[in-house]
Amino acid sequence: MTTRTGEELRNKQQTHYEDVNEGQMLPDYVLGPMTPTHIFRWSAAIENWHRIHYDQDFAVYHEGLPNILVNGSWKQSVLPGYLKDLCLPDGWMWKCSFQHRAMIVPGDTITCWAKVTSKKVIDGLGFIELEVGMKTQDDIETCPGQATIVLPLKGGRSVPYPFVPPKS
């Protein structure tokens, strides 16, 4: 994928359970390079006034950081959004867990990625287990985690909305 536009998402064709296999890398998505303006826009949108995200003097000289930092909350919103896109138009991003392992700073370009670790059919729906993350241009993993997405089977039933998890 590497980039995405509104038109691509509007017209996205469904990926089915049968289309993915264990070990497969799913299309990635690249954002950036990140700038202080991107970071400030996020802080303002969620009213997070922590100075390490927009005050470079404070971040570097008071907190000892290499630069202002991309917010962890931004990462934890972008990663599920990327998984949402992989599932469109009929699948569902059910679960995602991750850790904040490394800092993202201005100048970094981020690649959201997902690798299939297993898959199974439950109640006529395809449950795909993924290893996921957000790597920098230097191949540093900033946000490793796991996710479960739900895809329809070819010719199978739609994924329910609101999503109803399987009982087992």
């Binding site: 995405r4 509104g6 998402l9 954002l31 826009r41 996020w42 949108a45 972008v78 959004g81 949402k84």
Partner: peptide, 19 residues
């Protein structure tokens, strides 16, 4: 309006958010 600002900030162009 807040949704508009939020989706710009996460750089997600999905028209399902606004169209």
């Amino acid at each position: 309006e807040h949704l508009r600002r939020f989706v710009h900030a996460i750089m997600d162009p999905d028209p399902r958010y606004w169209d």
